[in-house]
């Protein structure tokens, strides 16, 4: 009911705000954020485990939330200068179009229609999402084909629905689809055995499994059904903000590649071992000016949230209760698919 009302409200809000003159104008979002003194970033309606969840003190945490904080630090100098707006999957696009939020950092798959028709643009992928299928262990399925005829559940309105249909149809596997708008109902249905399998994003499946009444009752099947690059989304025409986002992601990766962490960033700044690190940490000028930021923005980001690897470990990786391996979300020189851009 809530999400229903919220979706409708989002629609009405979009209708009204689209109809009023001087709605969020693309192109000046970066200066709007600076004037406002806070960044409006996406949360979730409820908890999307590992990425945007509310802890028992009512605070937001998770992988996506850390990126919101990192972006706020890059632009405004403080990880607290961010307002997390609770938002459903369906609501994220109307919300950014109407200016209710500045960016979408919500594991959003880079698809053609979103990139073109919705008037949005995507940053470089900040996360590589492999899609898996997680089955009830008692079924003893070793491959997805063993689940022939079963009920496959998914989050309604996400790319998972499409990816799953493509994979199963092209492999000639019959199935019964079932999708839920709310994460809580989806999990309840899975734990009750209404679904034989849950398809989704690897990290999401792992988190769902950890939270199950009996984690051993669920098994993630090894086949990767699809790979989805997830980007940070800004409005079409918001080139200045997109530049900041791209270089923020790149700085986090570069820091990890060079071994710069939250703990030792001050040592690196005091005696930078290479000209690149000198530029990254703002010891030699240029890195901020080109983006309309202060030169020490990357330094601030790293001292506030750490490098990419630290964020990952803390929220979904070894340091968290989800214990997700880095897998493809590792740097290129560690067998992953991620790489920093060239900082000249």
């Amino acid at each position: 009911m809530t999400s229903k009302i919220v979706t409708l409200a989002a629609g009405v809000a979009l209708a009204v705000s689209a109809a009023l003159p001087a709605t969020a104008q693309a192109g000046d979002t970066l200066s709007a954020i600076q004037e406002r003194g806070s960044l409006l970033c996406t949360g979730h309606n409820g908890s999307y485990l590992g990425f945007a969840e509310v802890d028992d003190q009512g605070k937001w945490q998770g992988f996506d939330i850390e990126f919101c904080r990192a972006l706020a630090t890059a632009i405004l100098g403080s990880p607290d200068a961010v307002q997390i707006v609770p938002i459903s999957w369906a609501q994220r696009f109307p919300a950014i179009q109407s200016g209710d939020i500045d960016v979408i950092i919500k594991v959003t798959g880079w698809t053609q229609s979103r990139d073109t028709e919705l008037g949005l643009q995507f940053s470089l992928p900040y996360f590589i999402g492999p899609f898996y299928v997680m089955a009830q262990s008692e079924l003893g399925a070793e491959s997805i084909a063993d689940l022939e005829g079963g009920v496959f559940c998914a989050n309604a309105g996400t790319t998972v629905e499409r990816v799953l249909a493509d994979y199963l149809e092209s492999n000639g596997i019959e199935y019964q689809p079932l999708s839920f708008e709310s994460g809580e109902e989806l999990r309840a249905a899975l734990y009750a055995g209404r679904c034989d399998a849950l398809a989704g994003f690897g990290p999401f499946l792992a988190a769902t499994r950890v939270n199950a009444p009996d984690p051993d009752s669920l098994t993630i099947i090894g086949e990767v059904i699809q790979l989805e690059p997830e980007g940070i989304v800004v409005r079409e025409g918001d080139d200045a903000l997109l530049d900041v986002v791209n270089w923020m992601v790149s700085a986090l990766l570069l820091a990890e590649q060079e071994g710069i962490t939250q703990a030792n960033v001050d040592e690196f700044r005091a005696s930078p071992p290479s000209p690149t690190i000198e530029r990254l940490l703002g010891v030699s000028p240029g890195v901020g000016e080109r983006l309309g930021l202060s030169d020490d923005w990357a330094y601030n980001v790293i001292s506030a949230v750490g490098n990419y690897g630290e964020i990952y470990d803390r929220t979904v990786g070894e340091g968290s209760r989800y214990k997700l391996p880095r897998g493809l979300n590792n740097l290129w020189n560690n067998g992953g698919l991620l790489y920093p851009l060239v900082l000249d």
Partner: peptide
């Protein structure tokens, strides 16, 4: 309709 909004983005 809700899923279609999310998949196609044609909210209005």
């Amino acid at each position: 309709v809700s899923t279609s909004i999310n998949q196609s983005g044609q909210t209005l």
